[in-house]
Amino acid sequence: MNPILTISHLNKTFESGFQALKDINLSIERGEIFALLGQNGAGKTTLISIICGIVNATSGTVSVAGKDIAHHYRDARSLIGLVPQELYTDSFESVWNTVSFSRGLFGKPPNPALIEKILKELSLWDKRDNKIITLSGGMKRRLMIAKALSHEPQLLFLDEPTAGVDVSLRKDMWQLVKALQTAGTTIILTTHYIEEAEEMADRIGIIRNGELILVDEKLALMKKLGKKELTLQLAGPLDAIPAELNIPELSLSANRLELKYTFESSGEGMGAADVLHKLSTHGIVFKDLQTRQSTLEDIFVDLVNAGGKETSAALAPTATTGEDHHAA
């Protein structure tokens, strides 16, 4: 099946001379959730704006479902829904009218039943006659999504969809996004909450200074670039690490009561089980252990800060176990 979105050699240089995008190449498959990560000013919104027709590209091509956005903009744009980062609304319009307006803009005949369904799914039905100015920030955010969904897009852009949204609403949004994916909508989201990308995305793209420095399956990325750390609280002080285990990845704390072992998530090198086994053969007893795994955020920060080199990520706790244990 053809990709829903194909970007080739896309460049954008603003009048000021600032190059916002540098030779972007990307292909998005139908039905996937793609998370575009990048720091402020990295080029995420510029990229989305070009695809949606809000900003002109300097060079390169973009096609949506095989339709070039410059030459077949009607066909291309009618397939796209956009939820912008900012809450741009007509304050004095009613919820119902503004969502119906969006559907009309995209050339679709009125469909009150669909608008009703969307508003109910987004918990806005009770507010349908309210003026937008009376809505809370979270409701406005949901309204933006309702407007974007009103013309039944195949490709939905969510630019920072949960910025300023409380935790419970954020989880509701994640569920909504998953439901949209199940219904066949392809979703491209940008977010500052990397937890969000980790939770939802099938693939991740990282953009830095206008360059797409990495695109990979989320799980493959975390496996490839992620690290794990095993910490053992020893039952008693250890004089020294046995010679057989004297490797850089294994270290003894200054108080000689803690051993730390850092290893690749990908399973390359000596695994945790091997280390535990070898410690056991040397009679080293521990009373507790913790494992920590790098998150997508760690990987992201590492990539952005390390100039794009594939380096090990910092670590965050993921699991702990208690009570005395002997290395098996």
């Binding site: 949606c52 027709g53 809000i54 903009y73 009607r74 066909d75 291309a76 744009r77 009618s78 796209i80 956009l82 912008p84 900012e86 741009y88 609304t89 007509d90 304050s91 969006s102 803009l105 995209f106 050339g107 407007k147």
Partner: peptide, 14 residues
Amino acid sequence: FTGTIYEILSAPLS
């Protein structure tokens, strides 16, 4: 001024 022009520009309108 309000930013809602994004919707007009991104719509399939000539």
